[in-house]
Design a protein around this nucleic acid. Structure first.
Lengths: 189, 189
DNA sequence: AATACTTTTTGCCAAATGGCAAATGATTCC
DNA sequence: GGAATCATTTGCCATTTGGCAAAAAGTATT
């Protein structure tokens, strides 16, 4: 739990009693490599916090190619926002790409936290806005650049990820084939 | 002002007194084609609402190419969030790509609205989250697809924009050269 | 250690896109 | 109406990337 509170306190204040209340609702959970945290066609019913490991959000195009929208590293919230908030079916999969340790909250408990803890909603909004802004910032540059530049940007953005996950996931994030990415890697060294 | 309140009321409630207060802070503003609403290297000091026209957010790559991050159409808020919130220099330009009519609020007035109107902050957070989510949703698919597919997606996403702005802006949004986009267009018909 | 399995690299060729420059088309201004 | 300016299209060729299949390298299993 230490990591979770360190994370949250960057976005607002919590006293001991509030943290105890949050702790009482938190459930620690192991998510093995390749397992899904939430799935397309289902409604997301949990908020998670990645303590250890890497998660990705991906979907499948009409041609059946898998597309990785982004990765979520340690010390970040993971939640399929649209699905969770609006209770509509998701169009994306949230999947562990390494063995992961998460702290999760059910929707019911999360709403209780939002209603009970003064300032919690504001704090959560800040966290979410920041995460969304980050996604926009990370995605936008990728459209314009050639594949090599995109890969170099990926290395900057996710420095801790490269050597922990398969090449194919990175390729599907960058919008390149695995073969091309392999060649690009070779040319960079 | 009617459009602004119609827009806001989709995200929460406002009574007449609150709307009058908002109106008292609002300034109507004409932004001619090509003019900047905010600029890279400066701090964004206004929140705007697009009543009429189209605005884009763009920046310049290290090779001097201009990159359009996204367009903002009628009936949306326009604000360089990171710069406005954190008072740091922006890295992007917000530019009118048609003659525009905006309603703007100074930072000082906007903060007064946030502090005075109960529920205004929550409402604004909803608006912003939705806009950010939309940006992520719109950008992500563009990375993976080929240029023709990207153009077709652009048409879906921004159906009202195509014939109102120069080809070169669309090209810079899609990450294609103007020439390629011109050829793509030809092949589609 | 040998086998099966997965991931990454490579070769070959086709298709898509870029770069540059010229031609055409549209619009504005006198 | 004609000149000047700006936006779009097109031709030509170089470069990048994709598609497919096979080889090589790396991992796990027995």
């Amino acid at each position: 739990m230490k990591e979770l509170f360190e994370f949250m306190l960057r976005f607002g204040n919590l006293n001991q009693q509030q943290m105890d209340f949050i702790s009482s609702k938190a459930v620690k959970m192991q998510l093995p490599n390749n397992a899904y945290f939430s799935e397309a066609g289902k409604i997301a019913r949990q908020v998670g916090f990645v303590v250890e490991g890497i998660v990705r959000v991906c979907y499948y195009s009409n041609k059946g190619e898998e597309v990785t929208k982004y990765f979520i590293e340690e010390n970040n919230l993971v939640v399929d926002l649209e699905s969770f908030d609006l209770e509509i079916c998701s169009s994306a999969y949230v999947q562990a790409v390494t063995d992961c340790t998460l702290i999760v909250f059910s929707k019911k408990d999360w709403q209780e936290l939002l209603q009970t803890i003064v300032g919690f909603e504001t704090m959560v909004n800040k966290i979410i806005s920041r995460a969304l802004m980050q996604k926009v910032e990370r995605r936008s540059p990728l459209v314009t650049e050639d594949a090599t530049t995109r890969y170099l940007k990926f290395l900057e953005i996710y420095p801790t990820v490269v050597n922990r996950i398969p090449l194919s996931y990175i390729a599907s994030y960058l919008g390149v084939t695995q073969s091309s990415l392999s060649r690009i890697r070779k040319n960079i060294r």
